[in-house]
Design a protein around this nucleic acid. Structure first.
Lengths: 243, 243
DNA sequence: CTGTAATCTTTATGA
DNA sequence: TCATAAAGATTACAG
C-alpha cells in the first residue's frame, strides 16, 4: 500500500526551523504559514498542537503561562496536543526547578487537563508526529481498525464485523462491507454458500454469480477459499457437467 | 506545597523494584501489594497507572498487547495513565522498529484513545509521578483509595486456535469442543441455530434442546447470546407451541 | 503502529 | 468470449 496521500497543516510563522524541515518532505506534507495566536500547528478544525522544547516547557511553568496557553488551546480546539520536545536529563539538571514540581505539572496537564502529551527527542521527531497526526486526522478518519482482542466496548455491529473477520478469510475492510450488506454473520455465511463460481468453457474460473455478485472486491478466489473453510468443500470444479 | 498527609496506593506484586523505592519514602506514601490483572499501580477507584519501560513499550506494540491492555485499563478505570519510563535514544536505536510506527502509536494512545501519557527518565522519577498523582487524587480531591477486584478479561492464552473463537462467549476450550464435535464452522453455526432454548411455564429460560444439548458447558445463556449476535433478534420464545 | 510484500479483483487489450 | 496484462485495492507479515 502506498500511502502517498498528501496532508496539509498550518504552521505559525515563527516556527522557521520547523518549516525548513517540512520543506524536505514536500511529497508527504504541505503547509501554509500564518500568524497563529493560540497554537503552533493547526491540523484541522478540531485539532491543534502546541510545541514546546524542554526549556520552553520549564520556562512557561515558571512564569505561569503554560496553563493559560493550554486552556486556551483546548478552548478553541477540541483535540489539544502538547508536543514535548527534548525533555531530557540536561533540561532537568540545568534548571533550578524542583523535579517534583515538573512532574506535578506534567501530571496535571495530561490527566487533569486532558491534553494529549507526546514526547519527542528533537525537531525531526516532532515532524514525524505532526505528519502522523495529520495523516490520521485527514486521511484515515473513520477507518477504525480494531485490534483482535477487545471484545468489550464494541458495538454490536463492530462485534459482528469482528466475528466475520475471524470466521472467513478477510480483513476489516471486507468484513465491514459484508456486515453492512448482510447485517448478521449468519446471513453473510448464507450469502457465501449461495454464491457460485462461474467457469469458462475451458474450465477456468471466470467470475461469480449470486449474492456477492454486486459487491465490489469479491471474486472467485474469495468464494472458493471461504467455501473451503466454512463447509469443508474442496472441488467445486464442474467443468464438463455443464455441457 | 508540602504534603503532610500520607497517600496510599496498590502495587502489582511483580513490581519489586518499585516497591523497594517506595519503602524509602514510607513517610510520604504507603502501599499494599496485590496481584493486579489490569494495571500496575492503582491510585483510586477511578485512577490507575500502567507503567512501561521503553523496551516494554516497543515490545508490547510488536505483539499487539499494548492496545488490549490500555483499552482494558480504560474500561475499568476512568482515568487511565501510561507512564513511559526511559524512552530515550537507546530504545529508539536498539529496536528494529520504524520510528514512524513508534510515534504513530504514541499519537493514537494519547490523542485517540485518550490515555494520559507521562514520560519519565527512570524508576525514581516514576515514583515521583505516582506520588504526585496519588496526592492529587487522595488529598486534594478527597477521593478514597482502596481496591476493587478488577473484572477479568477472559483468559485467552494462545489466540491462535480456531475461528469459532470469534463467537461472543467462546474461548479456546469451548471452540475446541465445538469443532471436535461439528467439524466445520458452518456446522457449528447450524448447530447453534438449531438449538432451542427451553422455557418454564412462567417464561423463564430453563435449559436447551438440540445439538448442543449433550455437550458440557453450553447452556441457554450461550445459545441466547450467540443467536443474537449471529442471527439478529431471537424471538425464540416458544413456550406453548410445544405442548 | 508502519512499511513492504504478497494476494486478489477489476479493467483493459488483443487474439 | 476467452486469456493475459496492467492497474487498483486489500490483506498478511515483519520489525
Amino acid at each position: 500500500m502506498t500511502q502517498d496521500q498528501q496532508v496539509h497543516v498550518i504552521i505559525d510563522n515563527r516556527e522557521r526551523k520547523l518549516m525548513e524541515l517540512l520543506d524536505k518532505r514536500k511529497d508527504k506534507i504541505s503547509y501554509e504559514s500564518k500568524q497563529l495566536d493560540v497554537a503552533d500547528i493547526v491540523i484541522s478544525e478540531n485539532t491543534a498542537i502546541e510545541r514546546k522544547t524542554g526549556a520552553d516547557f520549564i520556562g512557561s511553568i515558571m512564569d505561569n503561562r503554560l496553563f493559560e496557553q493550554l486552556i486556551r488551546l483546548q478552548d478553541v480546539y477540541k483535540n489539544a496536543i502538547l508536543i514535548l520536545e527534548g525533555l531530557n536529563d540536561d533540561v532537568f539538571e540545568s534548571t533550578g526547578m524542583n523535579i517534583n514540581a515538573i512532574y506535578g505539572v506534567l501530571a496535571k496537564v495530561s490527566y487533569v487537563l486532558g491534553v494529549a502529551v507526546i514526547p519527542t527527542r528533537n525537531l525531526e521527531d516532532t515532524v514525524i508526529v505532526i505528519e502522523r497526526i495529520a495523516y490520521r486526522e485527514q486521511v484515515k478518519k473513520g477507518s477504525s481498525v480494531m485490534s483482535r482482542s477487545a471484545p468489550k466496548g464494541m458495538s454490536k455491529k463492530e462485534r459482528r464485523s469482528f466475528i466475520i473477520e475471524g470466521l472467513i478469510d478477510s480483513g476489516p475492510k471486507k468484513a465491514k462491507i459484508l456486515i453492512d450488506r448482510f447485517k448478521t454473520p449468519y446471513k453473510v455465511i448464507e450469502a457465501i454458500k449461495n454464491t457460485e463460481i462461474l467457469y469458462t468453457r475451458t474450465g477456468n474460473p471466470k467470475g461469480i454469480n449470486g449474492p456477492l455478485k454486486k459487491l465490489q472486491g469479491f471474486g472467485w478466489k474469495f468464494v472458493q477459499k471461504n467455501k473451503e473453510i466454512l463447509f469443508g468443500k474442496t472441488s467445486t470444479q464442474k467443468t464438463l457437467d455443464d455441457l
